[in-house]
Design a protein around this nucleic acid. Structure first.
Lengths: 207, 207, 207, 207
DNA sequence: TGTTAAACGAGACGGTACGTCATGTCTTCTA
DNA sequence: TAGAAGACATGACGTACCGTCTCGTTTAACA
């Protein structure tokens, strides 16, 4: 199958709707992008292939998403829906739950896009910036876990909230990047939340 | 020489040395690979460019390194040299030291190759396998920190050694991938080593 | 028929034959070029279409023929075969014969390429140079007519041989460019060869 | 204005003047066309570029000039002004004068458009028809030379007036198409007007 | 002492994708 | 309804790499 990215749907040609963005076109393009990644994998994801499948002009793609990475990011944002974090009653339980949630999401074909976004961001400054924005937003959202724990007076005070959030994210991303989404979320949570050292004779005042 | 990746050294032509691998050729290729990444960035790193710069035939490259990723990995291994981990007397200090070591290494142009290896491994199964092997080796080597702490009777026992090693690696990789190699190693170490919750009256059975 | 330039012949893939030009590839490309012009017309003649039909990579085309015009010229030279000029016994007869020969040649689909070469040369300096070389060669070959006439002691001496050749070519090209290849060759020959003015009281010494 | 064809004049926006052609718009478009050809050459002449430079909508261009060729022709007609032919007293002198006039005109940047019109007509039937009309008109106007010569009783009668006009045009166009506008107009005139053969004892029946 | 086999530089080859440009059609908005 | 603006599908442009191939040369290992 050298050509044909089988735009199977006959899908009547989309004309311009005047000097402004055509939502139908945008939808067709993002849908095509998601489908290609899910079906063929990221290696077959190219501007060319997306345009072919969406029956869109390449110029149209480049008009709205100047790079492959930007399109990838847009496609990811269109289909992600993680929802809120469950309240298990303990910080450790909450951390395990959020990890499980993420691992499940990323294990799905569409969710797999995210690791390729991180990969592409290594060579694409624009995408890196977009990813950084997204990352900060996720970090913020992780803070609710910590806030809940604080409200429960669960925290030791040795570690700041943002630091905790970063550590959770680090564990999640590592497992994503190395393809270990079947990891034991509870074990990871315990590793993070519990102290590694016996804090009886704390070697000094914690900060 | 159509495009001149300026193989500046005239570098007398390397002929075959018989029916066996020519070390001079291998060296020239790996050197060219490292230089290209350092000078032009990963985007300009291609089998074509390496062959051009090393004055080598493309077939020679493919003979020894079947994929771009394999060559990248070989180039990385040729120049890395992290050395042993210092003994600071506490686990937290040791963790901070190893993070600082890694961050410094990765901040150098040659060190930057590593993040592109991780990125490339997302689309290259062979490279992913090679990276996984390398990762396990590094995890093992991190265990010495934990062993030293155990010998000092520093550990609480709540978390296993391999789990700790994985957490350290996760923090390191996250900062590598998001370009935050200027992060506070001591703060990260504290976040990992100290417990997040007050473990006196555990508020309930942890799952 | 959006894609498929129907490379109808299955035509087993042509591999490289080493670091040198593959004659089979060259032949396939030139044949494809000629066929496309003959079947679809010059407007459908594009590097893209030729590559598609010849089952050749575009890079291969550009390697040997850097511009559309160069390829057009090569295709024309491959199929032209005008042969020698007949000897009718008089200069006027010879001129008429050569015009008739040219008109017939150009009226064939492949012959029609030539007018597009002249057209393309208007915007392509390289092609213009190639065309100029070809034009001089044809001018030289037209001189044989004049030489035969001189041998017959037919000439008046008022006009030089090269000037006559240029005039013959001008008449031929004009009719080609304006699509009047059905013109009366004998009439044109008479117009050129006979004097327009009564040369009884020649208004002065010729030259 | 994505590419800036530097519509240097700010040139207050031209609005519609109701349901009829706006002469200011037409003028701006034709001026832009002429300028682009003169400044950038024919290769950079495109409907897109003209619209950009004239600050006109592309639809407006297509409304009035359905093809690139039509616009080219209109632009040429807008700026040509050859004027009448001088009377030198002999046919040969008149022919030389008209050739000199044409060569001078075509040598100017605006005049250079004409050869591209001829070129474009090779692939554009509409333009070819327009050019043919223009050509006939020029042929007719050349007849005045012949009529003057006839009035002077200069002609031999062997060649018809229209045939002479065609021959003059052929010589002019050839030199235009091959970029030889510095040619010797007098020599060309002599080649046409004088007979090539000694017409005393015609060596045999022509043809 | 030849002969063989592999390594090597070179680069042609069929491909795919790139990112840009022009085409001719369209729709909306403004006057 | 003319006109400016510009989105749109299409498809060619010319370039860069991909991974495979064949060539001719060089040398060590084998016969």
């Amino acid at each position: 199958m050298p050509k044909s990215d089988d735009p199977s749907a006959p899908e009547e040609k989309r004309h311009s709707i005047g000097a402004r963005r055509n939502p139908a076109t945008e939808a067709a393009i993002l849908d095509a992008a998601i489908e290609i990644v899910a079906e063929k994998g990221i290696a077959r994801f190219s501007m060319e292939a997306v345009a072919r499948r969406a029956r869109a002009g390449k110029a149209t793609l480049y008009r709205w998403w100047p790079t492959r990475g930007a399109l990838l990011m847009a496609a990811y944002e269109r289909q992600k829906q993680i929802g809120g974090y469950p309240d298990t009653g303990t910080l450790e339980g909450d951390v395990a739950a959020v990890l499980r949630l993420l691992f499940d999401h990323w294990a799905r074909p569409e969710g797999a896009i995210f690791r390729h976004i991180i990969a592409a961001a290594q060579s694409d400054a624009d995408l890196a910036a977009a990813l950084e924005g997204y990352r900060r937003e996720r970090l913020d959202s992780l803070t609710v876990l910590v806030d809940r724990a604080a409200a429960r007076r669960e925290l030791s005070g040795a570690v700041s909230g943002p630091d905790m959030a970063r550590a959770i994210m680090a564990m999640a991303w590592l497992h994503l990047m190395v393809g270990r989404l079947d990891a034991d979320a509870e074990g990871i949570a315990r590793t993070l939340v519990r102290g590694w050292v016996a804090d009886t004779p704390s070697p000094g005042p914690a900060v």
